[in-house]
Every structure is written in C-alpha cells, then in structure tokens.
Amino acid sequence: MQNNFEIVNMLTLRAKKIWLNRLAEMREKNLNPYDGHDTVGAITLDKQGSMAAATSTSGLFMKKAGRIGDSPLSGSGFYVDSEIGGAAATGLGEDIMKGCLSYEIVRLMGEGKSPQQACDQAVYPFIEKLKKRYGKAGEFSLVAMNHNGEWGVATNVEFTFSVGNETKAPRILMANPGPDHTTSIAPITQEWLDAYEKRIKAPIN
C-alpha cells in the first residue's frame, strides 16, 4: 500500500471451492487440519559464493487462528550459512521444530558431511525418536545444498523436488525413504507428471 501496489483479492473460485469442500469433509469424516499441508523451500548459490534459503507457505490448511509453523523460524523451516550451506523444510512444522532440522543439517555439513549424508543423519534418527516418544511422526521432507553446489534430500514420504544450475537444466526428481537411514532418489516419469497435472487441473465440484 505504501508503494501504491494494487490491492487484489487473491482468493480464486477454485481455491474457495476446495476450502468449502474441506469444511464439509471435516464435518462428515472427522478430519483434522493436519490432514494436508505444503511448503515451498529454496536454496540458492550465486557466482560470488553467497547463499540464501527461503520458504513460502500457505500454512497448515484449515489451521487454527494464531498458529505459527516452522516456515518463518530460522533453524527450523530454513537455515543458511554461506561458508557452509543451507537447508529448507516442508511438512508438519510442529514436529520439524522439535528438532531444528534445518540448522542440524547445516551443522553436520559444517563438520564435513556431504549434504546427502547430513540430511540422512539428521532426519531419519529424528523420525525414530519422535515415534518412540509420541508413537508417531508427522510427514516432513528437507532439502540441502552446500557452498560447493552439492545437494541432498531426506524425507519420510514420497517427495518431489527440483535441482538445476548454469550447466544443467532444472529437473524434477522423486525422493523416498530408503533402507538403513538412506534416501532413494530417481527422476520422475512422464506418467507421474501427466497424473499430477491431471489432478491439479481436475474440476472442483
């Protein structure tokens, strides 16, 4: 407003229908707000070696008023140190915050771990700790990159992410939990991409 930007209602008819349908689902199927969430996280490295990490989230869908998730909290939703690397998280913020996972991944990279080793070492033992303490762990995924441009990812769900640089075109990859605290990573298939596009463009009744 101070810079004369036009004030626009960002709520689309499609989004409103999705919200109304979820309200009905919550009443009829006794769903709770934790049955759906999403965050976009990004880590960048420029030609001068400066790094940045960022998150963008609509927050937990149907969340209670006043809830604050991990996304705006440095060390939880994101963390970066240009001399080491950065990390960003998506998923259930209440659980991610219990481990300060983005900071932990950067700390491990600072000890000499590769981004993939740091992600695996930070995320999977923490998932087991949550399950032991609370009987369950929320869904979450983390991406990381070090100051050399090497990257890593860890997740406890099926998780898609994208990587690219000045020499390699951006590509979409799929990560899944692997055996023995590791992460399985493979390119997405055209079949998966077609199904995804069909799903997000499907009419909302």
Results as ranks from 00 to 15, higher is better:
residue 3 N to M: 13
residue 9 N to D: 12
residue 9 N to K: 01
residue 10 M to T: 10
residue 14 R to W: 04
residue 14 R to K: 06
residue 17 K to C: 04
residue 17 K to F: 00
residue 18 I to A: 06
residue 19 W to E: 15
residue 22 R to H: 07
residue 23 L to F: 07
residue 28 E to L: 08
residue 30 N to E: 15
residue 34 Y to M: 09
residue 34 Y to F: 09
residue 34 Y to E: 09
residue 40 V to M: 02
residue 42 A to G: 05
residue 43 I to M: 03
residue 48 Q to F: 15
residue 48 Q to E: 10
residue 55 T to H: 07
residue 56 S to K: 03
residue 56 S to P: 02
residue 59 G to L: 01
residue 61 F to G: 08
residue 67 R to V: 00
residue 69 G to Q: 04
residue 70 D to Y: 03
residue 75 G to P: 03
residue 76 S to A: 12
residue 77 G to Y: 00
residue 78 F to V: 12
residue 82 S to M: 11
residue 83 E to A: 06
residue 86 G to W: 02
residue 88 A to Q: 01
residue 88 A to K: 02
residue 97 M to Y: 07
residue 97 M to G: 08
residue 99 G to T: 15
residue 99 G to D: 09
residue 107 R to F: 10
residue 108 L to F: 11
residue 114 S to P: 12
residue 117 Q to P: 10
residue 121 Q to P: 15
residue 124 Y to P: 00
residue 125 P to N: 01
residue 126 F to G: 06
residue 129 K to P: 08
residue 133 R to W: 06
residue 133 R to C: 11
residue 133 R to Y: 13
residue 134 Y to C: 04
residue 136 K to Y: 10
residue 136 K to R: 15
residue 140 F to D: 15
residue 141 S to E: 02
residue 141 S to Q: 03
residue 142 L to D: 08
residue 142 L to H: 05
residue 144 A to Y: 03
residue 146 N to K: 01
residue 149 G to C: 05
residue 152 G to S: 03
residue 154 A to Q: 09
residue 160 T to R: 11
residue 160 T to Y: 07
residue 160 T to S: 14
residue 162 S to T: 10
residue 162 S to G: 12
residue 163 V to P: 12
residue 165 N to V: 04
residue 166 E to F: 09
residue 168 K to E: 14
residue 171 R to W: 08
residue 172 I to M: 11
residue 172 I to D: 14
residue 178 G to K: 05
residue 178 G to S: 02
residue 179 P to F: 12
residue 179 P to R: 09
residue 182 T to R: 14
residue 183 T to F: 11
residue 184 S to C: 14
residue 185 I to H: 01
residue 193 L to A: 14
residue 193 L to N: 15
residue 194 D to Y: 08
residue 196 Y to S: 12
residue 199 R to G: 14
